[in-house]
Simulated scan of single mutants.
Amino acid sequence: MKVALVGIGKIAVDQHVPSIAASDEWDLDATVSRSGTVDGVTSYTEIDTMLAENLDINVVSLCLPPVPRFDYAAACIRAGRHVMLEKPPGATVAEVHALQAMAEEAGVVLFATWHSRMAKGVAAAKAALTGKTIETAHIDWKEDVRKWHPGQDWVWEPGGMGVLDPGINALSILTEILPAPVHLRRGIVQVPRNRQTPVAAELSFTGGVTASFDWLKQGEQLWEMTLTATDGTAVQLKEGGNRCIVDGADQSLAELGEYPALYARMADLVRKGQSDVDLAPMVHVSDIMTLCERETVDAFEW
């Protein structure tokens, strides 16, 4: 299938382009970006021009930041194209619901991707916890924004989510593997005095679940969660979900990496004519921004 990639930034170059290139199911046929391009691929600066000139492209993968994404997705749906949304799928829950309705009416596939759910150890963790009751769970998701989003001011602006941009990856795994849903009870988010979005968060959910997010972690990056069930089963996910340990034993891992697995899933959805839009991780982020106390901290500068 021919796919167009929109938003040629760091995530597109690091993950989407090589995943498409390595797949026998996909052909990267066009890009849309104000500045970025991919060698050997036809490039455009306007989405409407690409859609008008490439009628044989039936899938568009949107990798641009969440705030402008709705208008691009809506244009693609109106043009009868299937749409793949990088996480988070939009700037608000309501706008993604609107895209769902549009896609259903147009008869096209909409896929709200959560790449961390495709980490190699997540399926094993889910299997180990199926049918059990969680007693306690803790998430440590701590990374360096200067390494992963260098100079990208949009992450600090409304809709950029700040530390909840990586934090939603942890929440996407949590909502995938928990046997029963949980909701936020309380929390504190720290917001730099010169920015609009949080740089850190301490969160407490129902069901004994807690989380600690930090965007200023230097040195070794930390993406881990530990869950214990009432029957004593202990599950650890490390390396962003790519390593799963159950009761002290490493588990067998899924074969595909995160983004190759996303594109395999999208190909399957298109063949079946089915959409996949799970907004549970985004609902948690919305709750965090609504319910948490806000603490002003030192200014952030690149």
Rank of each mutant, 00 (worst) to 15 (best):
90 G>F: 06
91 A>D: 01
94 A>R: 11
96 V>I: 12
104 E>N: 09
104 E>H: 09
105 E>F: 05
106 A>Y: 12
107 G>F: 05
110 L>D: 04
111 F>R: 01
114 W>R: 01
115 H>T: 15
115 H>P: 15
116 S>P: 05
116 S>F: 12
118 M>I: 10
118 M>Y: 07
119 A>Y: 03
119 A>I: 06
120 K>R: 12
121 G>Q: 12
124 A>E: 08
124 A>C: 10
124 A>D: 02
124 A>M: 06
124 A>H: 07
125 A>Y: 08
126 K>H: 07
131 G>A: 09
133 T>H: 12
134 I>R: 09
136 T>C: 09
138 H>P: 15
140 D>V: 03
143 E>L: 14
143 E>G: 14
147 K>R: 13
149 H>D: 11
150 P>Y: 03
156 W>C: 00
160 G>L: 02
162 G>K: 01
163 V>S: 00
163 V>N: 02
164 L>H: 09
165 D>F: 14
166 P>I: 03
166 P>Y: 11
172 S>Y: 08
172 S>V: 08
173 I>G: 00
173 I>N: 00
175 T>S: 12
175 T>Q: 05
175 T>E: 11
176 E>V: 04
178 L>N: 03
183 H>M: 05
185 R>E: 15
186 R>A: 13
186 R>M: 12
187 G>F: 02
190 Q>G: 03
191 V>G: 01
193 R>M: 04
196 Q>S: 07
197 T>F: 08
200 A>T: 04
202 E>P: 05
203 L>Q: 05
207 G>L: 02
208 G>H: 05
209 V>Y: 03
210 T>F: 04
210 T>N: 05
212 S>W: 14
